[in-house]
Design a protein around this nucleic acid. Structure first.
Lengths: 343, 343
DNA sequence: TTGTATGCGTTATCAT
DNA sequence: ATGATAACGCATACAA
């Protein structure tokens, strides 16, 4: 457990003041290039390690930003994080990542931990079960920036990075209609979450535009847990008249539905055309391949982090305050699970 | 941006010394229960926030532990992290998580970041591309504990938490042999990684035990990237005499292979029986369902973190030093993709 | 361009 | 059971 080298050691060693060493190591412009080089080199030789705690204590900046996601085990979230990490690295920020596992309690605990860790900013995609936003209040009170991505909180005055879920829901439904489906069932998650609420809205608009009456009997709220999938399929098969199109707001759930529907003797897409959401890897492995909406994960991560960085650097106080929602492009990817009229 | 409350504020407010406040907040036994309660309450009222930086600066402990995983988007890794988080929470430790995306360079950068962050300990599952362990030297030099899980480094004297990959590889191969496959191909990742090397060993032992000569023509090293999958299938189909069993050391790759093999007109398992590895969700969605080896992710996370915690608490200096490898139980899960003789 | 002095908020040490 | 004091390593206001 060798002793840690400090800027005092380097200073003494080189016959300069600790201030100069500090400045040199922070690449301060007012330090002689020569001196700077000598200090850099000596620091390297001595195995100097910058003390983030002393620095944070003094400067009141931690260079840590917190990220809270519902689940880590999705290719979408992994892409988001990769995008965030890229931008954060360039800006010299570290990421503290945690997952809420869709639980409200766990999200509250995570936010509290982030607060105690004194992150400079927070990036959040809300848990499915989140029902209020009080847990973010300490951040807002202290004016620590909070940005949301994908699953955003409304009414907090925080910037959000999203896709146009209403449009995406509309496109998915319109596609099913164009394939000749008239009885289209829609399965979504917690309707308090913007992504599900908006897609449902799009579903209704698309029906409306085709003069088809909205039937609440064709809308199901599901927890999307493994156990819930069987219930979804049961529900679908019990609809009367028969459902000919199924729009599930989640790829894994949609894929599982396809599997079970096939087991029960239904042909996809002839008997039921199926559309998912998110373009997870599974959508290209299930048979038939799943029609879905592509989510720009990496880009969403980049944009969210870039905005936070700009805010922290004070480059965009005016801009960010006014920006309330940043919308990225998404697209419907049509595959065999919904293609009834090839061509 | 209200001013932060410090223990001095609480002390002044209550007419006690800052030392007492510090002790009370750390639940020091030598503080009067009454005083303690008064301090707790007042801290709450004033909105006091513990300053981790001042604390870390003085105590030289950060209560942060770093975790580096190859990829976050797998249900296995997500389980591992959940297990780690559970134990870490109970011990009052925070997790700093980062992904190497299987890249050696990125792993080096991650380790460096963890070092600069002064984590109290490090938990690592190596990247596929990692070829040396020099980047861990700063940790070892400073006697900061490094533990490996799943993909472990040998020769560093660090504890590792693993499953018996040799046995698992043996069981998978023996199962294929029992199903009547004699020409069994094996596809693995970087053979420098223990998990692949050991499973290959198991594959060879199983063949040996059935008196079947090992044929290097039946072993393929793959990067397991999306692009590499087609190459795997091409390779499999070019083997001569025909391959009747396929053991792929990765579930997603195995699932993709099944999909493509089916497209090319082969029946699974009649023409080729397929076995994967890891029991990822995909293994139960692909058709036919994939035979695979179940990995105890959550438990692996718990065990690894528990060992680190014990080490940090100095509870087990003797024990951990001597423990070099902790092996958890895994099991072959037989599903339709390899079942040629039902019963 | 460089240096001096001080403080950030906590905990360790020693004392009472 | 409680307190006084110093120290952790760095950054900054001010001075030169």
């Amino acid at each position: 457990m060798s002793e840690d080298i400090t800027i005092y050691d380097i200073a003494k060693d080189l016959g300069v003041s600790p201030t100069t060493v500090s400045r040199a190591l922070n690449d301060h412009p007012a330090v002689n290039a020569n001196t700077k080089k000598r200090i850099y080199d000596r620091a390297g030789q001595l195995g100097y390690r910058f003390n983030v705690f002393a620095s944070s204590l003094r400067s009141k900046r931690t260079n840590n930003v917190g990220v809270i996601v519902p689940r880590l085990n999705s290719s979408f979230q992994s892409s988001v994080l990769a995008g965030m990490e890229k931008v954060a690295n360039e800006a010299g920020l570290n990421l503290i990542i945690s997952q809420s596992l869709e639980s409200f309690e766990k999200e509250i605990a995570n936010v509290k931990t982030m607060y105690k860790s004194r992150v400079d900013g927070l990036l959040v995609s809300l848990a499915e079960k989140t029902t209020s936003y009080d847990h973010f209040k300490p951040f807002l009170d202290k004016k620590i920036p909070v940005l949301f991505f994908d699953r955003v909180a409304s009414g907090l005055g925080c910037t959000g990075v999203v896709i146009d879920n209403t449009q995406a829901g509309y496109d998915a439904t319109a596609h099913l209609l164009a394939q000749g489906c008239t009885r289209i069932a829609h399965v979504l998650g917690n309707p308090a979450v913007n992504v599900y609420a908006d897609r449902l809205k799009g579903y209704r608009y698309a029906l409306m535009d085709q003069g088809i009456a909205f039937d609440p009997e064709l809308v199901l709220h599901s927890a999307f847990t493994e156990e819930a999938i069987d219930a979804i399929v049961d529900w679908v098969m019990q609809r009367n008249p028969k459902v000919t199109g199924l729009f599930v707001s989640n790829d894994s759930a949609a894929a599982s539905c396809i599997r079970i529907l096939k087991k029960r003797g239904l042909r996809i897409p002839q008997d039921i055309a199926v559309v998912g959401f998110n373009n997870e890897i599974i959508s290209r492995l299930i048979e038939p391949n799943l029609t879905t909406t592509n989510y720009p994960g990496f880009e969403m991560g980049e944009v969210a982090m870039r905005n936070l960085v700009n805010h922290l650097d004070g480059q965009s106080d005016g801009l960010l305050q006014k920006t309330n929602m940043i919308t990225l492009r998404s697209e419907l990817i049509i595959r065999e699970s919904s293609l009834r009229h090839p061509g």
